[in-house]
Nucleic acid binder design. Structure first.
Lengths: 101, 101
DNA sequence: ACCCTTGTTCGACAATAATCGAACAACGCC
DNA sequence: GGCGTTGTTCGATTATTGTCGAACAAGGGT
């Protein structure tokens, strides 16, 4: 089954904001904002792989990321263009902040 | 005691995002974005006054609003200038969305 | 002084969300 | 086929958060 990646316009903005309102997920988004595709395993932020998988699911279901299978890995990327079109300035504003103290 | 209204730069962005990631609070922010000062009681979004007071506290402590006493009321206003300076585009992006379905 | 209005605070409770280990699934490789 | 790697899912636990009613506090009338 494909991981369901909803249409961004179907997602209430509160869901998007809630997805971004977590330190671990924000670190993931920061990493993804560097560009390109990242394997799930490349995000090591001090949580178990179960927790990491959970956070990636939250991001995906909030419409923030897309995922595709590649061998035994899964490659994740930020839906930057769509996000910037629907919420101009949001990602920039969030990413402009320094790493949380 | 004065309600403590922190310096915006002291507040992790995740706190700001979490404050905005709630339907009731977002409706309050939308109303405040119309400009000017609003009495707490003017926000009737189907929750009790205890809950409303709680949400206003969350917004205040996240640095999104300022409150001043005026007689028996309290007047709340959005810290728009500061927010736009620190997070350019964030409020606009969030407020541009239509009322949640 | 009394009361009404406006908010806040205090438990308490319910719902949501973060976290983990363990079990499971899919893939590639030897 | 069997094994290691990479992720996901399940069930349980804990922490956080939204919600309310009731009690309280501060003001402004009259």
């Amino acid at each position: 089954m494909e991981p369901h990646e909803p249409d961004l316009t179907d997602i209430p903005v509160t869901i998007v904001l809630a997805a971004l309102a977590d330190d671990v997920r924000l670190q993931i988004v920061r990493a993804l904002a560097e560009g390109g595709e990242h394997a799930c395993g490349s995000f090591d932020f001090g949580v178990s792989k179960a927790t990491r998988s959970h956070h990636l699911k939250v991001l995906r279901e909030a419409g923030l990321t897309r995922t595709r299978a590649a061998g035994t890995s899964r490659l994740v990327r930020l839906r930057r263009d769509e996000l910037d079109r629907l919420y101009p300035g949001l990602l920039d504003a969030v990413l402009s902040t320094r790493t949380p103290a």
